[in-house]
Simulated scan of single mutants.
Amino acid sequence: MLLFEPVGDFDALICTAGVVDFAALDQITTELFDIAVRSKLMGQVNEDPRKGVCLALLNGDFERFVRASSDRAWP
């Protein structure tokens, strides 16, 4: 495929696509949050956890959430 030609040979391709509602923190309902977690997060967490994938993934997600929301949610 032309898309991957500049990359050359590779062993695997990971897709992290999922359903996420982009809304202000105070507008995200529990239902919308659950959909996002099941769609974006659990698809990756359901991988083989023996090598620490789950821990690394969750730590990264928590860190990104804090960074993304800290300067917007509170004055």
Rank of each mutant, 00 (worst) to 15 (best):
A23Q: 08
V45L: 15
A36M: 12
D34A: 12
I14F: 13
E31N: 06
E31I: 05
S39W: 00
K40A: 02
G18H: 09
V37T: 05
A24W: 00
P49Q: 07
V37W: 05
A17R: 02
F22L: 03
N46D: 11
A12K: 14
T30H: 08
I28W: 00
D26E: 03
P49V: 03
F33N: 04
C15M: 11
A36D: 00
T16Q: 04
F33Q: 06
G18P: 00
D26H: 12
I14G: 13
N46S: 12
D26N: 13
D9H: 14
T29K: 01
D26Q: 01
R38N: 07
T29H: 02
D11I: 12
Q44M: 08
L41W: 04
V37K: 00
Q44S: 13
A36P: 07
L25I: 13
D48F: 12
V37N: 02
A36I: 01
D11K: 14
R38K: 14
D48L: 11
D48C: 08
V19R: 15
L41H: 02
L32E: 06
D9F: 13
V19H: 07
L41C: 13
E47H: 07
R38E: 10
D11W: 11
V19M: 07
R38V: 14
A24D: 06
P49G: 05
G18W: 09
V7A: 15
A24Q: 06
L32Y: 07
I28Y: 00
A23Y: 01
V19A: 06
K40I: 07
A12N: 09
N46G: 09
Q44V: 14
D21S: 08
M42H: 09
I14S: 09
D34R: 09
D9Y: 11
D21P: 05
M42Q: 14
I28A: 05
I28E: 06
R38C: 14
E47P: 02
F10G: 03
G18C: 03
T16V: 15
E47T: 10
T16Y: 11
D34I: 00
V45H: 02
L32G: 13
V45Y: 15
G18S: 04
V45I: 15
L32T: 02
P49Y: 12
V7F: 08
A24T: 03
M42I: 14
C15T: 14
A23D: 05
A23P: 01
L13M: 07
D48A: 11
E31M: 05
D26F: 03
V20Q: 00
D48G: 07
G8H: 06
V19Y: 09
A12L: 09
D21R: 10
Q44T: 08
S39T: 08
T16P: 02
T16H: 03
L32Q: 14
G43T: 14
D21E: 07
A17L: 03
L32S: 12
P49K: 05
L25A: 04
G43A: 06
E31D: 13
D9P: 15
A24N: 07
L13T: 10
Q27W: 00
K40H: 09
D34Y: 01
I14C: 10
A17V: 03
I35C: 04
D21Y: 03
Q44W: 11
L25V: 06
R38T: 10
L41M: 08
